[in-house]
């Protein structure tokens, strides 16, 4: 599997710095789980964070802080979330954690024209959802008022400019108006996060937009 569409430096740095809303972090961490190039780049950004921390000027801790910390240590670790063991499936670990399982566990809801979606829980103003687009079908023409990150998990889609397959990430901003079409063969499953509602360019989907939160 060759991934051709990667995360940008902006986004990797913001993820490393912990500045992205949870919805975007889910897409970024899912992509990195599939992409060794972006994983290596993330390690470099984490190293910048480490160097900045190391070279920074500290604020003195209270006198009893070391004792207090050793007492915390003696009290034992915070209960760890039970790690979900990787099973054969199409969802990498962070997405599996967010869904509570693989593809079969997704609670899909129809949004019209055979397209289905499942909104995943995330703190903050950005939203994240899984989308399933029937093979050969177009997603309604839409532009963006904010940033949208779309990661392909199964199948592939094409728009005017390019082709995106499993592991590829599309970064769409305000200036991009596009009409992605799922390739024939498999239904296309994507994970998409956005920090603003999508703007659909024909009237009916726009009326329905608030209802479907698409």
């Amino acid at each position: 599997m060759t991934i051709r569409h990667h995360l940008t430096d902006d986004i990797l740095m913001a993820y490393s710095a912990g500045q992205l809303p949870e919805a975007f972090s889910l897409v970024v961490s899912t992509h990195i789980s599939l992409c060794d190039d972006c994983r290596a780049a993330l390690q470099a950004y984490d190293a910048i964070g480490g160097s900045l921390l190391d070279g920074s000027v500290g604020i003195p801790m209270t006198d009893e802080s070391l004792e207090a910390t050793l007492a915390r240590i003696a009290a034992g670790p915070a209960p760890a979330r039970s790690p979900m063991r990787p099973k054969a499936g199409i969802f990498p670990a962070p997405l599996r954690d967010a869904v509570g399982g693989d593809l079969a566990s997704v609670r899909w809801r129809p949004v019209g024209m055979g397209v289905r979606q499942a909104i995943l829980p995330a703190q903050g103003s950005a939203t994240v959802r899984l989308l399933s687009i029937p093979a050969g079908q177009a997603v309604p023409d839409h532009g963006h008022s904010g940033m949208e990150l779309t990661l392909v998990l199964q199948g592939a889609f094409c728009d005017k400019n390019d082709r995106f397959q499993r592991g590829d990430i599309e970064i769409a901003s305000e200036d991009l108006e596009h009409m992605p079409v799922a390739e024939a063969g498999h239904d296309c499953i994507c994970l998409a996060a956005t920090d603003a509602p999508l703007r659909f360019n024909n009237v009916i989907p726009r009326l329905l937009q608030p209802l479907f939160r698409i």
């Binding site: 889910l26 961490s29 789980s33 994983r39 993330l42 962070p94 954690d97 967010a98 703190q123």
Partner: peptide, 19 residues
């Protein structure tokens, strides 16, 4: 420290890449 900050200040989780 970064993950603790996200948790403490934003009350949000940080999804991490698969090991």
């Amino acid at each position: 420290a970064r993950n603790r900050r996200i948790d403490a200040l934003r009350k949000a989780r940080r999804p991490e890449p698969e090991d």
